[in-house]
Deep mutational scan, measured.
Amino acid sequence: SEEEIREAFRVFDKDGNGYISAADLRHVMTNLGEKLTDEEVDEMIREADIDGDGQVNYEDFVQMMTA
């Protein structure tokens, strides 16, 4: 549901600035027990970053979650 997606976005957007940065993503993945290299984190950001601004905004996140 849209509310679940919004809630998930809030979990990833640690600093609440409306964007998921590589640092935000790394933090959440580490908490989930996933040890990722910087390259892996950057690749995840690139794949999710639809508009190419280097971070994942809510619209990018929705597209990723509903793809």
Results as ranks from 00 to 15, higher is better:
Ser1Gln: 08
Ser1Pro: 05
Ser1Tyr: 12
Ser1Glu: 05
Glu2Arg: 07
Glu2Pro: 13
Glu2Lys: 10
Glu2Phe: 13
Glu3Asp: 11
Glu3Leu: 08
Glu4Asp: 08
Glu4Ala: 11
Glu4Asn: 07
Glu4Met: 12
Ile5Asp: 00
Ile5Thr: 02
Arg6Glu: 03
Arg6His: 03
Arg6Gly: 02
Arg6Ser: 02
Glu7Ile: 04
Ala8Phe: 05
Ala8Gly: 04
Ala8Val: 04
Phe9Trp: 04
Phe9Asn: 01
Phe9His: 00
Phe9Thr: 01
Phe9Lys: 01
Phe9Pro: 00
Phe9Asp: 00
Arg10Val: 04
Arg10His: 11
Arg10Leu: 08
Arg10Cys: 05
Val11Trp: 07
Val11Lys: 14
Val11Ile: 10
Val11Asn: 11
Val11Ala: 13
Val11Gln: 14
Phe12Cys: 04
Asp13Thr: 01
Asp13Phe: 01
Asp13Ser: 01
Asp13Leu: 02
Lys14Ile: 10
Lys14Ala: 08
Lys14Arg: 10
Asp15Val: 07
Asp15Ser: 08
Gly16Thr: 03
Gly16Gln: 07
Asn17Lys: 09
Asn17Thr: 12
Asn17Asp: 07
Asn17Glu: 04
Asn17Gly: 05
Gly18Val: 00
Gly18Thr: 01
Gly18His: 02
Gly18Arg: 01
Gly18Tyr: 02
Tyr19Trp: 10
Tyr19Gln: 08
Tyr19His: 05
Tyr19Cys: 04
Tyr19Asp: 01
Tyr19Val: 04
Ile20Ala: 01
Ile20Pro: 00
Ser21Ile: 03
Ser21Leu: 07
Ser21Phe: 05
Ser21Asp: 08
Ala22Trp: 08
Ala22Gly: 05
Ala23Met: 08
Ala23Gln: 14
Ala23Val: 12
Ala23Ser: 06
Ala23Pro: 04
Ala23Cys: 05
Asp24Gln: 06
Asp24Cys: 10
Leu25Phe: 11
Arg26Phe: 06
Arg26Gln: 06
Arg26Ile: 12
Arg26Val: 09
His27Lys: 13
His27Val: 11
His27Thr: 14
His27Met: 12
Val28His: 01
Val28Glu: 00
Met29Thr: 02
Met29Gly: 01
Thr30Arg: 15
Thr30Val: 12
Asn31Ala: 12
Asn31Ile: 15
Asn31Val: 13
Leu32Lys: 03
Leu32Ser: 03
Leu32Tyr: 12
Leu32Val: 05
Gly33Cys: 15
Glu34Ser: 15
Glu34Val: 15
Glu34Met: 15
Glu34Asp: 12
Glu34Arg: 15
Lys35Cys: 12
Lys35Phe: 11
Lys35Leu: 10
Lys35Ser: 09
Lys35Met: 13
Lys35Val: 10
Leu36Trp: 14
Leu36Gly: 03
Leu36Lys: 06
Leu36Asp: 02
Thr37Ile: 04
Asp38Arg: 12
Glu39Asp: 12
Glu40Trp: 12
Glu40Ser: 06
Glu40Ala: 12
Glu40Asp: 09
Glu40Asn: 05
Val41Arg: 04
Asp42Ile: 14
Asp42Pro: 01
Asp42His: 06
Glu43Ile: 14
Glu43Ser: 14
Glu43Trp: 15
Met44Phe: 07
Met44Lys: 04
Met44Leu: 11
Ile45Asn: 01
Ile45Val: 05
Ile45Met: 13
Ile45His: 02
Arg46Lys: 13
Arg46Ile: 04
Arg46Met: 07
Arg46Tyr: 07
Glu47Asp: 12
Glu47Ala: 15
Glu47Thr: 14
Glu47Met: 15
Ala48Asp: 02
Ala48Trp: 12
Asp49His: 14
Asp49Cys: 12
Asp49Glu: 13
Asp49Gln: 14
Asp51Tyr: 10
Asp51Lys: 12
Gly52Ala: 13
Gly52Glu: 12
Gly52Thr: 10
Gly52His: 10
Asp53Gly: 08
Asp53Cys: 08
Asp53Pro: 03
Asp53Trp: 10
Gly54Leu: 04
Gly54Asn: 06
Gln55Cys: 09
Gln55Met: 14
Gln55Thr: 07
Val56Phe: 08
Val56Ala: 03
Val56Asp: 00
Asn57Val: 06
Asn57Arg: 15
Asn57Met: 10
Tyr58Cys: 01
Tyr58Trp: 12
Tyr58Glu: 07
Tyr58His: 01
Tyr58Lys: 01
Glu59Ala: 05
Glu59Leu: 09
Asp60Ala: 14
Asp60Gly: 12
Asp60Glu: 12
Asp60Leu: 15
Phe61Ile: 14
Phe61Trp: 07
Phe61Ala: 02
Val62Ser: 02
Val62Phe: 07
Val62Gln: 02
Gln63Tyr: 08
Gln63Phe: 09
Gln63Ile: 08
Gln63Trp: 05
Met64Cys: 15
Met64Gly: 04
Met65Lys: 03
Met65Tyr: 04
Met65Thr: 02
Thr66Gln: 09
Thr66Phe: 10
Thr66Ile: 13
Ala67His: 15
Ala67Lys: 15
Ala67Tyr: 02
